[in-house]
Amino acid sequence: MTRIWHQSVNELQHLQVYKKALEDHGREVMGSEAELVVHGLPSGTYGGLSATAALGNAYAYHRLLGCVIENAIEAEREGYDAFVIGSFSEPFLREIRSAVDIPVASLTEAGLLVGCSLGRYIGLVSNAPAVQWMTRTAVDKHGLGARVLDVVALDPALDEPALAKAYADPEPVIASFTTAAERLVARGADVIIPAEGVLAELLMRHGVRAVAGAPIMDVVAVAWAYALMQIRLWSTTGLRVGRAWHHRRDDPALVARLAEQPR
């Protein structure tokens, strides 16, 4: 069976409700087409902080998320058919694609590209200012600023543990998200993307599918479907990542040797 490695940047041991939501969602979306295997970061990675609190610092981001590259290499070694970066912080997407030959999808890129097919302007609602900033940076990195109306954050901001607790009482979060989304739609957004994984799962779990006539994207399902599309194209057409420039690999032996070295 096709297997997809879903890589969260949360310590999922402490967010079991989110991990279970992802696993249940994966079975609903992919059925017998593929098996989704959800992975998080080791307990203690953030030293008691949330991902939102820790990853705003560029040095911490580099040190703490470098293991995501190694996990992608491990996924390829173990025979996974695709690797999904399940975070709007989108760690090391270019580096991962330069290191492995299996398809790699990310919540941010897949959501933005599919969003361009659903409307002229995309609005994104993140959970907190730090993730809002990272998402804006990712929009620029993908060259899609002209298609994004704005990236905003929930008010009040909520980190991942607070969002996980809200799974038991979601109405305040849904109300806050709806207010932010309605404002974006009033300004011209055609489609809204929840720009944080725990938030996106909460909304989908509770049936939030549209606001003021604009669809609310099931961005996690979109990323999985995007990975499945790539797997199919890899298999049937031979399509691959371009190696000439952005993901170049002039010396495959060097890449292979580095991948074998312990960190």
Rank of each mutant, 00 (worst) to 15 (best):
M1T: 03
T2E: 09
T2W: 05
T2A: 11
R3S: 10
R3N: 11
W5E: 01
N10T: 06
E11M: 05
E11S: 06
L12Y: 01
L12G: 05
Q13T: 03
H14V: 03
H14C: 03
K19R: 10
K20P: 00
A21S: 11
A21R: 00
D24Y: 00
H25W: 01
G26D: 00
V29W: 00
M30I: 03
E33S: 09
A34V: 00
E35L: 15
E35Q: 15
V38N: 01
G40K: 12
L41A: 12
S43T: 13
Y46V: 04
G47L: 08
G48C: 04
T52R: 11
G56C: 07
A60M: 12
H62L: 15
R63Q: 14
G66V: 07
N71C: 11
A72P: 05
I73H: 02
E74N: 07
E76Y: 08
D81P: 09
S87Y: 01
S87T: 07
E90S: 14
F92S: 13
F92Q: 14
L93A: 15
R94L: 15
R94F: 14
E95M: 10
R97V: 11
R97Y: 11
R97E: 15
S98G: 14
A99W: 01
I102W: 03
V104M: 05
A105Y: 01
T108I: 11
A110F: 04
L118N: 10
G119R: 12
R120H: 11
Q132L: 13
Q132E: 14
T135Q: 08
T135L: 04
H142V: 05
G145P: 03
G145K: 07
A146R: 06
D155V: 14
P156G: 13
P156F: 12
P156E: 13
A157D: 11
L158T: 02
D159K: 11
E160Q: 06
P161H: 15
L163I: 14
A164Q: 10
A164C: 14
Y167I: 02
A168F: 15
D169P: 02
V173W: 00
I174L: 13
T178I: 00
T179S: 06
A181M: 02
E182L: 03
E182M: 03
R183K: 05
L184F: 04
V185F: 08
V185R: 01
V185Y: 04
G188V: 04
G188I: 01
D190S: 10
V191R: 05
P194I: 01
A195E: 12
V198A: 04
V198E: 01
L199Q: 03
A200S: 12
A200F: 01
E201R: 04
E201M: 11
E201F: 00
L202R: 05
L202Q: 05
G207E: 02
G207M: 03
G207C: 08
A210K: 14
A212R: 10
P215T: 15
D218T: 04
V219E: 02
V219C: 00
V222L: 12
V222P: 04
A223L: 02
W224S: 00
A225V: 14
I231M: 07
L233S: 08
T236F: 09
T237E: 08
G238L: 09
A244M: 08
W245D: 09
H246A: 08
L258E: 07
